[in-house]
Each structure stands twice: as structure tokens, then as C-alpha cells.
Write a protein that binds this DNA or RNA. Sequence first.
DNA 1: TATACTTTGTAACCTTTGTTACTGCAAAAG
DNA 2: CTTTTGCAGTAACAAAGGTTACAAAGTATA
Lengths: 208, 208
Amino acid sequence: MNEDLKAYAHLFENELLEEISEVGLQKHVAEGEKLMEIGQYVTAMPLLISGAIKILREDKEGDELLLYFLEKGDTCAMTLSCCMGQTKSEIRAIAELDTELIMIPIQKMEEWTAKYKSWRNFVFESYHTRLMEMLDTIDSIAFLNMDERLLKYLSDKVKITKDNVINSTHQDIAYELHTSRVVISRLLKALENRGKIQLHRNKIEVLF
Amino acid sequence: MNEDLKAYAHLFENELLEEISEVGLQKHVAEGEKLMEIGQYVTAMPLLISGAIKILREDKEGDELLLYFLEKGDTCAMTLSCCMGQTKSEIRAIAELDTELIMIPIQKMEEWTAKYKSWRNFVFESYHTRLMEMLDTIDSIAFLNMDERLLKYLSDKVKITKDNVINSTHQDIAYELHTSRVVISRLLKALENRGKIQLHRNKIEVLF
DNA sequence: TATACTTTGTAACCTTTGTTACTGCAAAAG
DNA sequence: CTTTTGCAGTAACAAAGGTTACAAAGTATA
């Protein structure tokens, strides 16, 4: 069995783990690399081994919005979803960190869903997690002000990267929160004055 | 077989339709009646026969936000999701119209998922549809101004009720879009001036 | 009919967010 | 070392949306 499948060992029965080792294609994605673009067809489903992927949405003007992150043990529910109907991707996926993943050809999806109970549970669990993440995203956009969203963004980022120094420019953050650089600079400065963060060039030190 | 299951006849094999007839509990919900409250445990999964259900989210201050509508042939992906983990409902469900539905005890879920391919497809399809609806909701909140959201709200409402007269007060609409009555009155008046709608007391005639 | 309540219209004002413009500074490139 | 480029800070202003207050009109009820 593939060593890197350890993360999934307690989830899947051995037979399934064997199958994954056989048909899964291991892949390394460097930080910043694009895994999936909007409108692209989905041919494989990613199982995350390590690292993190950020999932973004775009409007017709090309403005971005960060939806959520995928981490070890996650899969992309959008992919699951797209496999069924041969539909195009509705989202963009970019590696937030250097990431290891196993790509499963989508043909196996249906087969395993019939064959393995653990696979079905995994798929359902993934859908559930993703729906909850989407709800959380909606809560943030609908109910929070920009300063609260920014604070949440910073703490999410620290959690994902396990590093309380965030290597982003104000413009990067503005894109992901779908606002302007000036607004982010303003709010970051206010957070610094409140002692929550320390600003540096190209990086932000989170103190909370 | 239950006559009302016709909507599902082309989706499911006969054996499954029989089972649904046996264990499913038919239920009528009057317009405005609450089907599910936030924090409540989920014990059955609804299959919509006719009518429409609106799904709402609430923040900690008690402010609401309309997420999407369920219609004939839909089921509640949140319920599916909750069945697995015995978790509480994250959403509120209220009948938008008089609605007929069949309640399936959640114990059957897992059984049917293993047994019937058509059920698996239905469940996956439901998750897919719901994720897409959530994306659409996120797009609206994140990328549209309130006047555009209002226009979309009105046209969605007309589509769901199949009636171009909407029987709502401005306050009702304000709650569902998570804004204030004054803002809605203002924007509705602007829409009326642009000839898109005709305002009356307690109802809005949609002309587009 | 008189009264109370609900809904709508609207003005004035405030807060939040977005935009434009310009500055200084740090890092990279030459 | 100098020049160029990109990033951050900030002021001034604009726009969208939220709040308060009050009046007018419609509806229900005593």
C-alpha cells in the first residue's frame, strides 16, 4: 500500500485502499499552482494527502471570492458533483501550500460507491462538510462586516498554514475577500492599532 | 403504488417505489407552516410531491436570510447531510406554498443507498443541485448590489409560485434579503418608476 | 362611524465600503 | 549605485446601504 494513504487507512477497508493504490495517480502541486479552472472538465477526483488547496469563485467581471480551503483527508465535493453529470467546474482551485494528492479517475467513483460502504460514507461525509463550509461562507458574507470578515480570514489562514505569519500583500487579501486594496489596508491598520496584528512588507504577523 | 409518487416514477425502480409507498409517511403542510427549526434533530427526509419550501439561515442576532427554494422532485440535502451524523439542523424550513411531501425515516437512507443505484444517483444529484444553489446564493450576496438582488428575488418568487403577483409586504422581503424595510421600499419604488413592477398594498405585480 | 393598527412613502442623516489620487519606501533589476 | 517597479499609508471624496422619524393611506375592529 502507498505510504501516503495512511491518512485514509482508518476510513477505508484494505481492499479499497489496495484499489486506490493501483488506480490512483500521486501528484505533487507546488504552492500557487492552479489545479482547476472554471469551465474546465473534471476527469479525476483529488484525495488530499498533505498541504492545502483554496477554492475560489469568480463573477462575470472576473472578481474573485475565496470560498473555503481543503486539507488533508478532504476531497473536492464540487468534483464529486461534477463527475456525475460531466459538467464543467464551477470553481477555481489553487494550491495554498505545497500539496500532495492522489488523483482518482472518475470512472471508479460509481463502481466504488456501489461496492464499498466506507467509500459511500466518505463521499457523503465530504458533501456534508462542504455544505457546512458553504453555509459558513454565506454567514460571513451576509452577516459580518468587512472588519470581522478580515479577522476571520486571518485566523483561518493561520489555522490552515499553521504559521502565524501570513505571506500576503494587502492586494492578495482584497482579491480573496472581494473588496479593494485600500479598504484592506485601512482595516489592517486599525487591527494593528488594536494590537491584534503586526504589519510588515508582504507579510502580516498575527498576534491573537 | 402511491399516486403522488408519479413525480419520482421515472427516477426510481419499481421495487424502490414500492418501499417508499410502504414506509413513507405522506404529509400536507399549509403555506407559512414551519417544517424544521434550527437546532432541531432530523428524523425523516422529505421528498417533495408538490408545492414549495423555503430554506432560511439565521445569524446569532436572529436576522434571517433566504438561501433557496425546494420544489417538486427536490429533497433537502441538509437533511441527507444531517442523517449521517445525527446532527442538528442548521437551517429553518417554511412552506412557501401549500405543500405535499413524503417523509422517509432516515434509517432507510443507508439501506437504500447500498441497495438501489437509482437512489444513490438521486442522493448525489440532490447534493449536486444543492451545492449549485448555494453557489448561486453566494454569487448573489457577494457580487450583486441590493437592487439586483431584489430583482432576482422577485423573479425567483414569480417562478416558484407561478404567479406574477407576489403577496408580501416590504418588511417580509427585507427579512429574507437581510436588509431593512426602508431600503426595500426605496428600491421597489425605483423599480416601479422603471416600469418593472406595480406596487399595491400587501402585493407586488411583477411586469417583467 | 370612530378608532386602532398595519403598511407604505419619504426625508434627513449616519456608517460602511469603494474610488481616486498621491506619497514614501523597500526590493529587485539594471 | 541608480533606476524601476511594486507595496503600503493616507486623505478626500463618492456611493450604497442602514437608521430614525414622521406622515399618509389602507384595513380591521370596536
